[in-house]
Design a protein around this nucleic acid. Structure first.
Lengths: 226, 226
DNA sequence: GTCTATACGGTGATAGAC
DNA sequence: GTCTATCACCGTATAGAC
């Protein structure tokens, strides 16, 4: 049963090819949702963008529904990997970490009209598709918990500060989501940089007496690469 | 050519019936998007909920696309009428008006999972449908301008306050949008009342030295009826 | 105005050659 | 694994009776 270890190279290359193909198809799905929308995305539109036949999509994913779920999962994993990487690369200071988490959300790699359009499309379908709802909910919750913890630590630095960390984290994460939407809808007057400035304004309002907030904000990397 | 003025009553009743029918169909469309989602909403699902044939829907709206556009327009008009009514019914104080605008957004009549699901569905399709984009953009912009003006007046009450009213208004409106989304996705842990509390937390952060903020917040009506 | 019946194109998925 | 050909089904919209 274990003799296949003699030659693993071909097997590795096979699964590598498999992953590359799947990634190609998922990218084409994202591109299709971006160009023609979720409701108009069909196997035909995806196959054309991926440069292969509809039958190949079914071969690799089993069904259109499964492809869409895996596309959403890909975006969710990408987002999670990005903020976790930025978090890990940031010194253990609540202020620095809050800034890093926020800035990651608005890095060009994650925050562009194409990706936002696709996220928005999945959110729009989430209520009637339990699988989507679960993926979207998990994405938000894990990051929210980290944000609550860091806000709690920052608040605790001032013993007189009695605010609830969850409330502060809710305004931060909530504003992130709302500004993403505004970038998509009101793109002629509001872009990524406007959103970053707005996030800083809110942060300053929450922590007017914390020294070095602007410095921490400026020095936080955008964390461009996922 | 003008003799039909002799009897306008039947004509009025005809157009009244027409409006009632159209309203019925739009309500059924909202219900369908809420139940089966935008992508799965068909003339068949709407017709069944409306209790009439598919041909009747086409007769009244011309096409499925036109019906969807008019449904979005209906929601937009409803939202606009609600905040304008609340605004008009509020004393001419910037603080009271800001509170009224915020609270209207979270009144049960506008802010429930059914309506949010439908808005979210249209936002998800907005990027690829210029008509949707235009309606959504107009909805946001007009309210935003009022919010900017009232924030400006409130800021001006303190001559030392040099903040930009647009930035403050962006955080308020942006958070409203983000919390709507969270109510939809994370409904088990976050509802309308949580959202209202979160909005107040942000407002307090922006205006910690404004006297009577909590009182103004409490006395602002929810503006339940559109 | 509202219905039933239907035209017609496009949809996801399968079969089978290579 | 990937393709072409094909299937059964469902989508919007129309025609025409009432």
């Amino acid at each position: 049963m274990m003799t296949q270890t003699v030659r693993t190279a071909p097997s590795r290359s096979r699964t590598a090819n498999r992953r590359i193909r799947r990634k190609q198809i998922i990218s084409a799905t994202i591109e299709s949702i971006n160009r023609v929308g979720f409701a108009e995305t069909t196997l035909a539109t995806v196959a054309k963008l991926a440069g292969m036949s509809q039958a190949s999509l079914i071969f690799h994913f089993g069904s259109k529904d499964a492809l869409l779920v895996e596309t959403l999962q890909f975006l969710s994993d990408e987002h999670q990997a990005a903020w976790k990487k930025a978090y890990a690369a940031t010194p253990d200071s609540p202020l620095a970490r809050i800034c890093a988490l926020i800035k990651t959300d608005f890095s060009p790699h994650l925050c562009n009209r194409k990706k936002i359009a696709v996220w928005q499309a999945f959110w729009g379908e989430a209520k009637t598709r339990p699988t989507y709802l679960h993926i979207c909910d998990s994405r938000d919750n894990e990051r929210f918990e980290v944000m609550v913890r860091e806000c709690g630590r920052l608040i605790a630095e001032d013993p007189a500060d009695r605010r609830n960390p969850e409330d502060i984290a809710s305004t931060i994460d909530g504003l992130s989501d709302g500004l993403w939407q505004r970038i998509l809808i009101n793109y002629k007057e509001f872009d990524r940089k406007d959103a970053l400035r707005t996030m800083l304004v809110q942060l300053q309002a929450h922590f007017p007496n914390v020294p070095g907030l602007e410095a921490a904000w400026e020095s936080a990397a955008l964390g461009d690469k996922g």
